[in-house]
């Protein structure tokens, strides 16, 4: 029986549609990009082979290191903050209270909206002259700041807006995970006199680890590719390039300076960073995940 399963070629039939499309539109373009990253190419002229020239230039560019640091800064703050807030909201929403459907919808509305529309609204909120944030702070007698034009505050402002935008997404996934936890476990725990915190610590948290792991992996990958909000809210990489993230760096190289080979070299480095982080998550963190 075990032997038969080990040579289970029929399983590939189930994978076929997904694999064919992914290979055609994602994997092959990656290799194409990898090849182009060894060329000097402006999209119009003839590509010229320059070996690892793009890569050595990349590692000599202090702006590239800055963009990596900015991306890590964004990821390290936004991922845990978003998980913490969304788990809290999901736990609140998992109670049998009235009006639950309305709350679920409200918390999801920012996710529904396109990032372009939302970034326009938040630009207005952060506006130093007439923005709402400064107006609200004025009520508490806190002096106004220039927010997105301030090298210290620009990135926190983008992180805050991104967490706001993405919260509802994680809330829904956490809710689905919470609903999969059998109710009788809580009943048994209550009979044994377990406190709310103990119930969370010993039932909810361990049984929710597959969901938390999933959210953690997906958010990490997503946060390394942050682009749209940075592009919309802090054009040109922000004050003192404080919001220059990797994807914005490569976008600028490719679509503004037309150094296509160079941009793809940067994309490849980003891919290697993201892949290493994900591999670490899979090999190290997934051991702690509790699958039933």
């Amino acid at each position: 029986m075990a032997n038969k399963h080990n040579k289970d070629w029929g399983a590939y039939l189930y994978l076929l549609p997904v694999v064919v499309i992914l290979v055609t539109f994602h994997v092959l373009p990656i290799f194409y990009s990898l090849i182009v990253s060894f060329y000097d190419w402006d999209l119009i002229g003839k590509p010229e082979y320059i070996g690892t020239g793009n890569y050595s230039r990349l590692f000599d560019d202090p702006m590239f290191y800055k963009s990596i640091w900015n991306t890590i800064y964004y990821a390290i703050i936004s991922v845990p903050l978003s998980i913490f807030c969304s788990l809290g909201i999901a736990l609140l929403l998992n109670n049998p209270i009235s009006g639950i459907g309305i709350y679920r919808t409200i918390y999801f509305i920012p996710v529904i909206t396109s990032i372009n529309a939302v970034a326009i609204v938040w630009n207005f909120i952060y506006n130093p002259d007439f923005g709402l944030l400064n107006k609200i702070l004025a009520v508490f007698a806190i002096e106004p700041r220039t927010w997105l034009q301030d090298p210290f505050w620009a990135m926190p402002c983008i992180i805050f807006m991104s967490v706001w935008k993405g919260l509802g997404y994680n809330v829904i996934i956490f809710l689905a995970g919470l609903q999969n936890i059998p109710r009788h476990l809580y009943e048994a725990a209550r009979i044994d006199g377990a406190s709310r915190w103990q119930q969370f610590r010993h039932i909810t948290w361990p049984l929710l680890t597959p969901t938390t792991y999933f959210i953690f992996v997906i958010s990490s990958i997503g946060s390394f590719q942050v682009f749209a909000q940075v592009y919309m809210m802090t054009p040109r990489g922000g004050p003192l390039k404080s919001t220059m993230v990797i994807v914005y760096y490569l976008y600028r190289k490719a679509f503004e300076q037309f150094e296509f080979g160079y941009a793809l070299a940067a994309a490849f480095i980003l891919f290697i960073i993201t892949f290493s982080v994900t591999l670490f998550n899979k090999l190290y963190l997934e051991k702690k995940v509790h699958y039933s």
Binding site: L22, F224, Q225, V247, F271
Partner: peptide, 22 residues
């Protein structure tokens, strides 16, 4: 499975031009 996850890690911006040509 890891290769499938890998396809999520390439930024869209890098795939646009090869895909457009194709």
């Amino acid at each position: 499975f890891m290769m499938m996850l890998g396809t999520m890690m390439i930024p869209q911006q890098a795939l646009l031009i090869p895909n457009y040509i194709f």
